[in-house]
Design a protein around this nucleic acid. Structure first.
Lengths: 101, 101
DNA sequence: ACCATATTTTCACACTTATCGAAATATGGA
DNA sequence: TCCATATTTCGATAAGTGTGAAAATATGGT
């Protein structure tokens, strides 16, 4: 879980992740994201690896391109973990209310 | 936002935060959390400061004790930011579904 | 087979972070 | 006021992290 949060706790990776969330299940090609965010290929690859290792994103090969996309299940799991047993389970006192997309 | 995620992306702080989430609006005294998680006072104070600065927790003085509690609004805001514009706004394709406490 | 393009790996460097011991700063009670 | 307790600050150290340049590794087209 710390690994998941760490992966998102970095400006470049947070931008990458949000771009992939917006791009939906199809995702985006690695280079496409690199151009959009103006990040060097080496740095890009480093961050993709970090996000992948945390399970936050997935990749698939398509010709010469590698498409990355967000894994929503992991994100949902993270939020669930953070709010687990909140307010000792007292629904009335609880101030957690997260939107559904 | 990166600051918020960074604050949670650390084992000790994540444990502190979850303990405070579970303790609800009343929160817990600093020392109480320190004993519960077996962390030295100095380290504890360092992490409280980090979480406070990120806005994830709040403090109030009560006699000799300082009570810390989770700020649920910031957590909710974080999740909203992470899922913003997900799947380009296509509700049907979207796989984000976060529970309400 | 060769070339152009897409991505990843390696390496080195600067910067940030977590931890603890010891000292300092509240706060309340006798 | 003086003491005990609660918490924070300071200082030092060890470990981790983000970055780009350059080289290496696919993959597809000609």
């Amino acid at each position: 879980m710390v690994e998941t949060l760490s992966a998102l706790a970095q400006p470049t990776r947070l931008a990458i992740y949000r771009a992939l969330v917006a791009s939906g299940p199809e995702g985006m090609a690695a280079g496409e994201v690199a151009i959009k965010l103006k990040v060097s290929p080496a740095t890009m690859s480093f961050h993709f690896k970090t996000l992948s290792h945390a399970g936050l994103i997935e990749s698939r090969q398509e010709g010469r391109f590698v498409y990355y996309s967000a894994n929503f299940a992991v994100m949902n799991g993270m939020v669930e973990y953070l709010t687990e047993n909140c307010c000792g389970g007292d629904q009335a006192a609880c101030k957690v209310s997260v939107k559904k997309c």
